[in-house]
Amino acid sequence: MVDEQQTIRIGIAEGAILTGPGTITTTGLGSCIGLVLFDVIDHVAGMVHVMLPESPSPSPALPQKYADTGIRWLYENVLEAGANRARLKAKYAGGSQMFRGLQTEALRIGDRNIAAVAEHLSQLHIPIVNFDVGGSVGRTIRFELPSRALHIRTARGEERSI
C-alpha cells in the first residue's frame, strides 16, 4: 500500500477525523477554538472548530459549532475511528478577543469558549497536553500525524508548536 499523506481542511463549525499520516488544518481562529483529541500511541486524531460555548439544544444541526456538543461529537468519532479511550489527550488553541474596546457581550466569547472547552474535557477525563489561548490575535492551526504536533501561526507571523 502506498503511504499516503492526507491533507484535511476544516472551516468554522466543522470537524474531521484523521487516521494515519497527514494533517488537519483550520484557518483564522478568532474567538473560536480549534480542539484536537488524539491517541498517544495509535495514529488516530480529530479536530473541531467550535464557535460558541453551549448548544441551544441537545442535538443541534451542527454539533461541531458548540463546545459542549462539539467535544462530544469529536470524542465519539475518534473512538469510532479506533482511538483508545484511556490514551486520549487534548491540545487546543484560540479563544481570542479580536476587537478591543467592544461594549457588547460578544467581547467575552473567547474567554467563555476557553472555559467551556476545559470544563468539558475535564468531564470526560481527557488530559490536556498543552494549549495556546487568549490574547487579541487570530490563529491558523495545523495538527500533524504521526508527530502529534499542533503548529500555530498568527497573523503577525509568529509560529510555534505545542
Binding site: 468554522i12 483564522g28 478568532g30 474567538s31 460558541l52 444541526a61 461594549q103 487570530g138
Partner: peptide, 25 residues
C-alpha cells in the same frame, strides 16, 4: 450604530463574532 471597533487580522478570525451572533446557519 455603536462606536466602531477595529482589528487587523485574518478575515475568518475577525468575522467569527459576527457570525456567532447571527443565529441560525
Amino acid at each position: 450604530q455603536s462606536v466602531p471597533a477595529v482589528a487587523i487580522d485574518m478575515a475568518a478570525a475577525v468575522l467569527d463574532i459576527g457570525l456567532m451572533m447571527s443565529g441560525n446557519e
